[in-house]
């Protein structure tokens, strides 16, 4: 391990991130868990859930959002999919020497507005400045506290469960990637950066017994399904023709050679519910803001040799693998 180093793909949310956590960070922390969950119950504080997230997105401003609102949505969404209504946030800014005040103002104004819209104000924070070159413009870390909703027991995946997605996938990753240096590519695809709490709330209001939820961020829908299948020792079959993808996003994925299943989202909810609840859950999601294009996209089965399978539109089938890490434009 002495000669091993961090490579970009360690931050991609895929298999390499998982390996870094399980083989290096968790043992070093002395954690008894094999995974650090996105959010956890506060020890000794029944009903309170705590989470944290760091944001290093480049560029800071992208179509459909910016690092400020994203830093709020990322954290409130981790709470929401843990079954907790967000209460309050903290925010830490790491600023690079030379950054314009105008940028700082725009980013924090966006974060403040997003936090208010989510009903989770930013109540504490910290600011540090590092010398030019020691950070890339601006990094943000947010932490959040939420209150567990008693109805959401989230007992876990079961054989026969249906998989739902709240809307078209892969928009965030494409919107951000298209504005990266070195990719000559403009798109009308906008990031889906948004809070998923209203979607969760709609499921609760409809009385759905949600078995499990996740927001498919880095690593996309593929990573979420791979993780759930592994955690519960079950298999998941997804149906390609049912998975919503905007035509412009599908075209952008073709241009960049990416699989939409592995591209990041920042405002989508993946929910697992019993088969008999699927129709009602779908109706609930479709009635909520941001859930208009929700769909039932797959089914949970007993464990087969392959954890996650995609039934393609030609009746073919293939594995869905946990993405490796960094999404790279594929060219040849």
């Amino acid at each position: 391990m002495a000669d091993e180093q961090i490579v970009m793909a360690h931050g991609g949310g895929g298999a390499l991130t998982h390996e870094l956590l399980t083989e290096t960070i968790l043992p070093a922390l002395g954690s008894s868990s094999y995974r650090l969950p996105d959010a956890a119950d506060l020890p000794g504080e029944a009903g309170l859930v705590f989470t944290t997230d760091a944001f290093v997105v480049k560029p800071l401003f992208f179509r459909g959002g910016d690092i400020g609102s994203l830093s709020v949505h990322g954290t409130v969404n981790d709470l929401a999919v843990s079954g907790a209504k967000p209460i309050a946030l903290t925010m830490t800014l790491v600023l690079e020497e030379g950054l314009s005040l105008e940028t700082v103002e725009a980013v924090t104004a966006s974060a403040g507005a997003a936090a208010r819209a989510c009903g989770a104000p930013i109540v504490a924070g910290d600011t540090k400045v590092v010398a030019r070159g020691e950070a890339d413009e601006l990094f943000i870390t947010t932490a959040g506290v939420g209150r567990r909703v008693p109805e959401l027991t989230l007992p876990g995946l079961r054989d026969g469960d249906r998989v739902l997605i709240s809307g078209p996938i892969a928009d965030h990753g494409i919107a951000v990637m298209s504005q990266r240096e070195g990719i000559d590519f403009q798109t009308r695809v906008r990031s889906d950066s948004a809070p998923v709490w209203p979607l969760v709330e709609a499921l609760v209001a409809a009385g759905i017994d949600v078995h499990a939820m996740r927001d498919p961020t880095r690593g996309g829908l593929a990573a979420v399904c791979a993780e759930f299948a592994e955690d519960y020792g079950l298999s998941i079959t997804l149906h390609e023709e049912d998975i919503p993808v905007r035509p412009e996003t599908a075209a952008a994925c073709s241009i960049l050679g990416l699989d939409p299943l592995t591209v990041a989202n920042e405002g989508k909810l993946t929910a697992f519910v019993a088969a008999e609840d699927a129709d009602r859950a779908l109706a609930a999601l479709r009635s909520a803001p941001g859930g208009e294009h929700a769909a039932v996209i797959g089914v949970v089965t007993a464990r087969r040799t392959v954890p996650v399978t995609l039934r393609t539109r030609f009746g073919g089938q293939r594995l869905v693998e946990m993405p490796y890490g960094e999404d790279l434009p594929r060219i040849c």
């Binding site: 699989d259 995609l310 393609t312 030609f314």
Partner: peptide
């Protein structure tokens, strides 16, 4: 591979 064509 991506189309799962071997299976058909």
């Amino acid at each position: 591979g991506r189309g799962g064509l071997r299976a058909v």
